[in-house]
Amino acid sequence: MGMQSLVIHTWILTKRSLIVLIRNPFTFIPNLFISLFFLLVYTGGLSGISQLPEFDGADYLAFILPVSIVSAAVGGAGGAGQSLVRDLESGYFARLLQTPVTRLAIVLGPTIAGMLQLLMQTIIILTVAFFLGLNVAAGFGGVLVVILLAIGWGLAFAGYSVALALKTKNAQAAQAGTLIFFPLIFLSTTFVPLELIEASWLRIAATINPTTYLFESMRAVLIDGWVMGPILSGIAVITAVCIVTVSLSVRSAKRAFQRE
């Protein structure tokens, strides 16, 4: 019991989430499509602006790639909460509570499945980017850093979506909660560096938006190589957000598992 059953139960429930995911491809295809759309359309349509001096000669493909990866990550991670809401609505959640399953595994299963989905999506997007001629300044290690940053961000968002799902117990509310994705992605240095943002409100928003630091750290390894300043601040911000959202999800999980 204890640790061993946690591992077994988590594995069983992760496998189940993956089976459900594969049987419902339309839960991830649109999200992947939109992310690839960002990559292809913005690279094709906006790459001219990377001639501006503020870009420092950066390739626009490498500049926009993090946006594509992060939007895919958010979708994959949001799936963790969605799958819990599905279980709450179908009554399978109550059925699971009737078994001696390790409670943590009920939340970990869909979360890990969401992370695996995110990993696959990130690899697909990176592959497409390489076909489009991506050069990573920090080399293979840099690619790993990008993947790790994506997973870290995904975990932060998964924590948020799980907390929301268990708190609202309502599919529409959980779905509506993922709309936070829009300000997070677009009120940032999404298309141009901070120096090129003219409106001061957008500058302020971009400065306080944690996603900005994620973009900057990914861009650092993609464009400039091992520049530790932005890389470390990205990692620090992600860690902080993760701590907040994961503890929120743990709190709402404890409530959901508590008996009336």
Partner: peptide, 13 residues
Amino acid sequence: GVVLQDTGLDQDL
């Protein structure tokens, strides 16, 4: 063993 009105099964399995 319990069959409640609000227990259900995962319909995709």
